[in-house]
Design a protein around this nucleic acid. Structure first.
Lengths: 146, 146
DNA sequence: ATCTTATTTAAGATTTATTCTTATTTAAGA
DNA sequence: TCTTAAATAAGAATAAATCTTAAATAAGAT
């Protein structure tokens, strides 16, 4: 129906990988998610309709999608990986208080010249910005609790 | 003798923390290191002269130094934390092949204006650039092995 | 210089994210 | 429907980091 699922079917076929019901459900949840879910988050969401699913399958499927460039993967707090169905080139804002993560776009960033030592360093495959701080939500909270 | 050690002694005192021999040796290794060592790296280096040291002490001491802003901490590949005695504001270049990490400086980066959504997001505490790619060393190697 | 005490340490147990192993199940082509 | 290679579930294994506890020790007090 939805062309995202047709695309998944096509990509699986091209990679000689079986499109199982579990992969489909995991894919459904990751494209629905808006908040950079962890493997465990996705596992819990899929489990609602598929109580027998194993967390290992979620790990395997998400990493497969990632290796195909269908989703992206971030390691913000080292503790656990978090995935994102946004594959447009983007940067991250990260609240050190609530540990929430936001995507943002900044085309102008790519127009300033990199330092010479970077250009001579090797083959650059990506350049990303990470903003750290306290989000407004958390600032508001610490204000009211004062 | 060296004023770095005098500084450590002073900072420990100010924080009401005992300056033990293990802390001193761990500090000695981290300021000597040039390659963003992991906890295990430091542990192995300290162990040479101090075979009874426990890895837990290395974890505790490095995290203490980090909490005081004496060293910095990066989680590049999620697998393990890596420390750095360079506390000047800097960015990272990261080779996805050999997983080595370089620091670089880019003052001009701070002069371009951030997108509105970022400025309105909350209190910004830091903004960092991460460059990913293949370093020249690795490029050379893949050339010769072809 | 010795005593006292709260901290720190070593060692091993524990926790947590992730991956591996293996027998069973299943998608997809024949 | 049959066949078979790949995928799955379940639980074991691995590895980074933290916790627990008894013993050791730094640093101030005597």
């Amino acid at each position: 129906m939805d062309n995202k699922f047709e695309l998944l079917k096509e990509i699986c076929k091209n990679h000689g990988v079986k499109l199982t019901y579990q992969k489909l459900e995991i894919f459904r949840e990751i494209i629905k998610a808006k908040n950079h879910p962890s493997v465990e988050d996705i596992y819990n969401r899929v489990k609602v309709n598929m109580p027998t699913i194993s967390i290992d399958t979620v790990y395997r499927s998400l990493n497969t999608f990632y290796s195909w460039g269908l989703i992206s993967k971030v390691h913000i707090f080292c503790d656990k990986a978090r995935f994102d169905s946004n594959t447009r080139l983007h940067h991250h804002m990260l609240c050190t208080e609530c540990e929430k993560l936001w995507d943002f776009y900044w085309p102008e960033f790519y127009s300033i010249e990199l330092p010479a030592e970077v250009k001579e360093w090797g083959n650059i495959e990506g350049q990303f910005v990470e903003i750290r701080g306290i989000c407004r939500e958390c600032l508001k909270e610490s204000e009211t609790s004062r």
